[in-house]
């Protein structure tokens, strides 16, 4: 009896671990294996590869690369140690380029990268390479898209109050929100910012949005993967929403006004070229409106007046030519 029960409970645990493992390991393993010429790449990402946000932006970008590559993905590694193990595993397998998609993986990378001098590690969002010459760093100028979104948001708000739902006050969330706030306030709006304290708590994000609505906000935006809850609240209330990181139009085809989309491929393309020419790392890249790494994708399903559209275009142009300071 005792033995049986131990067996059963360990079986359950094993089942659970297997289920977790099945999702965490190579859910998008498109490598064909032995075509020797192709470059091999791997992505290690902290959330789901289809989160409509941070992780998805990188997966989409790598898939958009115009090159003969094979890609392996380990996603959902919100535990840093798991990510580190995956990164080291890929390096040991001889993968050429490994993307460590998360600021929090920096310390692990500093340990792993020196052991594999022939491998290129791509790490972000980060603004330096920690002095490692086989690490490329990347960061988005998220404030730029935030600024453009903010210009439009202030223009379409009638109450003049805009609610922002952020996760934790760090990384590209801060720069997006700062850019957004600067533009919206310049446009005469009041911006209420809530950092919920969590990247994953959908319920809290939803209630944060509700709180903004109670305070008369009539336009909402937010960043990180938990905002799907806030978008739902916006939908219910019929309030316009601005997205970032990925195109969030699918969450509400009627109310998502525009999304700032990260196209990491522009930075990745340059890194791969450098690698082709023998430079394995040591440089930092920023994607922005000017280099095409950031794109504001407007939703045709949301009608914007010509004035507003023109203002947005002007903001984009101003940021690119440097005449506008996003305040970030």
């Amino acid at each position: 009896m005792r033995k049986k029960l131990r067996l059963i409970s360990s079986l359950i645990a094993v089942l659970g671990v297997l289920a977790l493992g099945a999702t965490a390991c190579g859910s998008d393993d498109s490598s064909s294996g032995s075509d020797g010429g192709a470059l091999t790449m791997a992505i290690v990402a902290p959330s789901a590869s289809d989160d409509l946000a941070f992780s998805q932006s990188m997966v989409d970008s790598v898939n958009a690369l115009d090159r003969d590559i094979t890609v392996q993905i380990t996603d959902g590694t919100f535990i840093v140690e798991d990510a580190a193990a995956a990164i080291r595993g890929y390096a040991e397998d001889g993968v050429d380029v490994i993307v460590a998609h998360g600021t929090q993986f920096g310390a692990s990378l500093a340990e792993i990268a020196p052991d594999f001098p022939d491998t290129t590690f791509v790490w972000g969002t980060a603004t330096d390479t920690q002095g490692l010459d086989n690490v490329f760093a990347y960061a988005p100028a998220a404030d730029e898209g935030g600024y453009v979104n903010g210009v439009v948001a202030a223009a379409i708000s009638s109450t003049g109050i805009i609610g922002v739902v952020g996760p934790v006050e760090a990384g590209d969330a801060v720069s997006y929100i700062n850019g957004f706030t600067a533009a919206a306030e310049a446009g005469g709006a009041t911006v209420n910012v809530t950092y919920t304290g969590s990247f994953g708590d959908v319920a809290l994000a939803a209630e944060a949005a509700e709180a903004h609505l109670a305070n008369n906000a009539d336009v909402l935006t937010g960043t990180a993967q938990m905002v799907v809850g806030a978008v739902g609240v916006a939908s219910d209330a019929g309030v316009p929403w601005f997205g970032t990181q990925s195109n969030q139009t699918s969450l509400d085809p009627d109310l998502v006004v525009a999304s700032q989309v990260y196209h990491w491929e522009f930075a990745l393309e340059e890194m791969l070229e450098l690698r082709d020419n023998g430079t394995k790392g040591g440089q930092t890249f920023e994607i922005n409106l000017a280099n095409g790494g950031l794109v504001i994708e407007f939703n045709d399903g949301f009608e914007l007046s010509d004035d507003v559209k023109a203002a947005a275009e002007a903001a984009i142009a101003g940021i690119i030519d440097g005449s506008i300071d996003t305040g970030a």
């Binding site: 089942l15 493992g21 999702t23 289809d50 978008v231 739902g232 699918s250 969450l251 509400d252």
Partner: peptide, 20 residues
């Protein structure tokens, strides 16, 4: 652990991208 893993697996297989 089973619930966490299995719901995650099913979501990715059956749904993929969050749809409202």
């Amino acid at each position: 652990i089973f619930g966490l893993g299995f719901s995650d697996l099913m979501f990715r297989q059956q749904v993929g991208t969050p749809k409202p």
